[in-house]
Design a protein around this nucleic acid. Sequence first.
DNA 1: TCTGGATGTCATAGC
DNA 2: GCGCTATGACATCCA
Length: 420
Amino acid sequence: MVYYQNGTSEMNQTDGFLSSILNDEDLQLMDMAMNEGMYTMRMLDSNNAISNLSISGAAGATAVSRNDMERMDTSSDSAVSSMGSERVPSLSDGEWCDGGSDSGHTTGEHYVTDYQSKIRPYDYSYSSRQLNNGIGNSDSARMPPVAQKKHQMYGKRYFQDQSASNAAHLPQTPLKYEYRDSTSYPIPNQPESVVGSRVPEMKYSCSVEFGLQNHLSRNSIDHIQHNHTYHLPAESSGAMQRPVSRDKSKPRKSEEEHLTRDEKRARALNVPISVDDIINLPMDEFNERLSKYDLSEAQLSLIRDIRRRGKNKVAAQNCRKRKLDQILSLADEVKEMRDRKQRLINDHEFSVNECKRMKDKYQQLYRHVFQNLRDPDGNQYSPYQYSLQTSADGSFLMVPRSNSTLSNPEAKEPPQNHKE
DNA sequence: TCTGGATGTCATAGC
DNA sequence: GCGCTATGACATCCA
């Protein structure tokens, strides 16, 4: 066992050399690197946490990202149920219209007005959205507080007297997406109070408030300016008559042309209940209304079809909205994963470089120490016969090579350039 | 005329 | 069994 000769003049030089190595900023950089790496890992863990949170909250489909948060802000006053089974809080019937399920035709003006400020017929809350609300809570105030049936959720009541001036424009412009509630059909021998007695005409915009507009780089109005009013010929239509072209350049001839197909059918069969009521009344009330009239089989069949189609129409709209949202959420997740992958690559690259640098430092130190060691006779030790081992406290031990590997399997081999 | 997006409708499954 | 919702598939309209 030979110890470092601290008393020699050479060691003074060595001290300087060692201190230069040991105090090298690279070592500090190493610490920094490690800290940074750990920080990065914490960040990754954090991301994982968020990701897991979002996944668990949205049936594995929704990532919580800033974009999602922003989208959430635009769509959290839900009107439609989530993918799950939870029910969306409700507003009173006075606050929600139950229309919107029919081809809402409204003028462009009306649409713009409604779209921007009134109607959010496609809003719905996923569980993840609710989760997000819990985090951001920016929109919770707009969330209806009580569970609500879905057929009561689509569209808010919009009284025409809110925009009398707009109403004045109605005759001049083709109707688009304007749904006139309380379509009343004059039924002989029916009391006025029962049929078509609603005074305030209400409009429903079948708008699509996609919170995705920003993502899709699309004018929010572009995709809803179709006039999906079904114009039927004289009537007596079959069960499935094709929608007729709705050229808005053609002058409007009569109100009837802008009735939906089902409205025209209902009118043709003298159905005494408005299409809106047929679609949106709760089952009990709906049956109660039906019981008031002596309806033929054809009328009952049509009413059932109207109700089914009306509900399914809304369901389809929500389904599509939901699908788009899922696509955007997945796109966010993909982006997040790509970013994470890049961060990991960078961290790994940095670690490899640091490892290599430290190896070089160690070899340098090893060589320096070994060359300055002397036996009792003042001769250098042969690197082929001895090797140095470093202990945990930083001290060096000279160990015979043949024994070193036997006695201590972890003994470090001399560097390759040790033979110099 | 073609094309893609939007929307309505039907069929079906599941609750 | 009924009513409702969700969703794929198809049809139609429209820019």
